[in-house]
């Protein structure tokens, strides 16, 4: 069936909105990752840089325990977040980059919540086993389990934000 011109233009508008939203999410994620990676570099700079680093470090303190022995180091200073959080955020960035290749822009449907459960399972098991003392987990496995969580979460967040940004005509459906 041939598409009507009005319907076609609405579709184009919606696609453009989705691409802007996607660009915003990608930029925000890159800035977020840049901030916690730049902290150890700032720690190695002059006094002003160190103070800026301290503010970023305090900011991420609201989201992470920031224990140095569980964090990646750069120039002898730890990242502003632990290895698992580093994995989660870089995983989210990876998921965001891969999103247009793996899912259609038009598809707003969220994956089943069971995906989240399976994604969180390795990190959960790791956490429990290390707390019991049965397993000593290094930085790389911690960050890999984080990457799995972050990458999966991206496929929930992006379509939800596409859905949140309303279409120009509410009746417009694909």
């Amino acid at each position: 069936m041939k598409k009507e011109p009005l319907q076609y233009s609405i579709r184009q508008k919606v696609l453009a909105q989705h691409k802007i939203t996607y660009g915003f999410i990608l930029t925000l994620t890159m800035v977020w990752c840049f901030l916690f990676v730049v902290t150890p570099i700032l720690c190695d700079s002059n006094v002003t840089g160190k103070k800026a680093g301290a503010l970023i470090w305090l900011f991420f303190g609201a989201t992470c325990h920031q224990m140095a022995e569980r964090s990646f180091h750069l120039f002898g200073h730890p990242f502003a977040v632990c290895a698992r959080c580093t994995g989660i955020y870089f995983g989210f960035l990876l998921g965001t980059i891969l999103y247009p290749f793996l899912k259609k822009w038009e598809n707003h449907a969220l994956p089943s919540w069971k995906w989240l459960f399976w994604a969180a399972l390795p990190a959960g098991l790791e956490f429990i086993l290390s707390k019991i003392g049965l397993l000593h987990v290094g930085l790389i496995p911690r960050s890999i389990s984080g990457i799995i969580i972050g990458g999966t979460v991206a496929f929930f967040i992006i379509p939800a934000l596409f859905d949140l940004i309303k279409t120009p005509n509410k009746k417009a459906r694909y």
Binding site: C43, K50, K51, G53, A54, G61, H77, P78
Partner: peptide
């Protein structure tokens, strides 16, 4: 508590510069 935790992390020799404590 938040501030106390941050201070204890800094004081425990967390490979962080002393300027961090000045900010705190």
């Amino acid at each position: 508590t938040g501030q106390e935790i941050l201070r204890s992390i800094i004081e425990s020799g967390n490979d962080l510069p002393s300027e961090f404590e000045e900010v705190l």
